[in-house]
């Protein structure tokens, strides 16, 4: 799976340039609010519950300043990826204890044909290991600039 294929699952409506949340719970709520606003998806509570359960399993803030909340739920029909940023950073129970600035949120249906979701997650976690890239992504002016930066890296 290529990065271009991964980015087909997101859209400008699923780009939250600056989260207002100041803690983990409200960040997840804001993220799910963005998903509902940016797609025909309706079941807010089910998605929020699934993401919260996933965090109970272990924080998804696995890289420096970056988190990948993810999971599968009946509430979505297809793999949907939301991107969010927080310049000030949000405490997200990260492994290094530092606040999280970048969020890639992957929500997949239970029947995930071809393991699209695992493969997308693998592409993103691999790509975003670069500190230089993460910095550039934080500075990107908008969705198009963000995707362009990601694809050029």
């Amino acid at each position: 799976m290529t990065l271009t294929e991964v980015l087909k699952h997101t859209s400008p409506a699923l780009f939250l340039s600056e989260l207002q949340a100041t803690d983990k719970q409200s960040a997840l709520e804001e993220i799910v609010g963005g998903l509902i606003a940016g797609t025909p998806i309706t079941n807010r509570d089910t998605i929020l519950q699934m993401l919260q359960s996933r965090e109970q399993l272990g924080s998804t803030a696995v890289g420096p300043g970056i988190a990948f909340p993810h999971g599968r739920t009946l509430a979505v029909r297809q793999l949907t990826i939301l991107i969010a940023r927080a310049a000030r950073g949000i405490p997200f129970d990260s492994i290094d204890g530092a606040p999280t600035h970048l969020f890639f949120v992957l929500i997949a249906p239970p029947h995930d044909s071809g393991n699209q979701y695992i493969r997308s997650l693998a592409v993103l976690t691999d790509k975003l290991q670069s500190a230089e890239l993460r910095e550039k992504l934080m500075a990107a002016p908008d969705y198009d600039g963000f995707c362009k930066t990601l694809q050029e890296a």
Partner: peptide, 30 residues
């Protein structure tokens, strides 16, 4: 729906192959 989603997450975590895919990406499943 929530129960079915959660059961799937538990199954995924208990599945060694699937769990390894996640841990190789850096996720903890404690």
């Amino acid at each position: 729906v929530a129960i079915q989603d959660l059961e799937q997450m538990i199954r995924d975590t208990e599945d060694e192959t699937r769990a390894r895919e996640f841990t190789e990406m850096g996720f903890t499943l404690n």
